[in-house]
């Protein structure tokens, strides 16, 4: 009803410059929009099941390849646990190579603390640091630490059609930050497989242009949720690819303890 009213009020201005067939097409598109939005939300909700995992322990290897040259693999442990008030919290601890071993990042909501391996000092950092490359990779600290925040809670989704990615038929959705949400990227384009409802690719755009995209593969069952054990971030700004290969993933893990999400715990990391 609102759409009809909109068309009626708009016609007097528009029909001077637009043919009537265009208006009819517009009406069809506008009328279809709520349905597409509903579908987009449902598709996104299904893919977002990977974020339902809580109390997650993981051990993974981050490998950066720049200009075709592979750099030293970085081994890290991750601990994720949502707070009782719903704040996403994560702790990442680097185990290798030796020069970064003992470096740790604690994120609680928008707040970030770092434990520097060279001095052992723990320091709060500005939230702008989250945009920066994590350990020299194509992932930002935010990409790595905000893994427990689902996209559907942070972004508004709109359906943008279908596309085959690597031979797999996918839904393509455009995500823009929800009102009041602040994000490091102004838009995400996500490809979700039609059959399984898995994220297959996420493209990050900023200042009107795509800056990088992330492929997610090797989905395996963790509890009753399928999770990608191989995540690859491709930079579009430089010749660089970063891969996170998960070796161990446990959810509802006893290895994740409440005391880890405290700056006092960072003092104890070596």
């Amino acid at each position: 009803m609102k759409i009809k009213l909109f068309l009626l009020t708009s016609r007097s201005r528009l029909n001077r410059v637009l043919p009537s067939s265009f208006l009819i097409l517009s009406a069809i598109i506008m009328a279809a929009s709520p349905l597409a939005a509903q579908d987009a939300s449902a598709i996104l909700d299904k893919a977002d099941r990977i974020f339902e995992l809580d109390r997650v322990y993981s051990r993974s290897t981050l490998t950066v390849t720049r200009s075709g040259r592979e750099q030293a693999p970085q081994v890290m442990e991750g601990y994720d646990l949502e707070s009782s008030t719903g704040i996403a919290r994560s702790l990442s601890v680097f185990l290798a190579p030796p020069r970064v071993a003992g470096t740790a990042y604690l994120m609680m909501g928008d707040d970030l603390w770092v434990r520097f391996a060279s001095t052992g000092r723990v320091r709060k950092m500005s939230s702008s640091a989250k945009k920066n490359s994590a350990a020299g990779s194509d992932f930002s600290y935010a990409d790595m630490g905000e893994g427990s925040n689902s996209f559907s809670t942070q972004y508004q989704a709109s359906y943008d059609g279908e596309e085959r990615i690597n031979g797999t038929s996918c839904h393509r959705l455009i995500l823009t930050p929800s009102p009041g949400e602040q994000h490091d990227y102004e838009q995400l384009t996500v490809w979700i497989t039609k059959d399984e409802g898995h994220y297959l690719r996420i493209q990050y755009s900023d200042k009107g242009a795509p800056v990088k995209y992330m492929d997610m593969e090797d989905y395996r069952l963790v509890g009753d949720i399928e999770y990608p054990f191989l995540i690859t971030m491709h930079s579009l700004a430089r010749d660089s690819v970063s891969t996170v290969k998960t070796e161990v993933m446990e959810f509802d893990s006893s290895k994740v303890e409440e005391r880890f999400f405290n700056t006092a715990y960072l003092d104890t990391i070596r």
């Binding site: 500005s126 702008s128 945009k131 920066n132 490359s133």
Partner: peptide
């Protein structure tokens, strides 16, 4: 004061 730019510059 400190600021981290998206280019990596601190």
């Amino acid at each position: 004061l400190e600021y981290y730019f998206s280019s990596g510059l601190v």
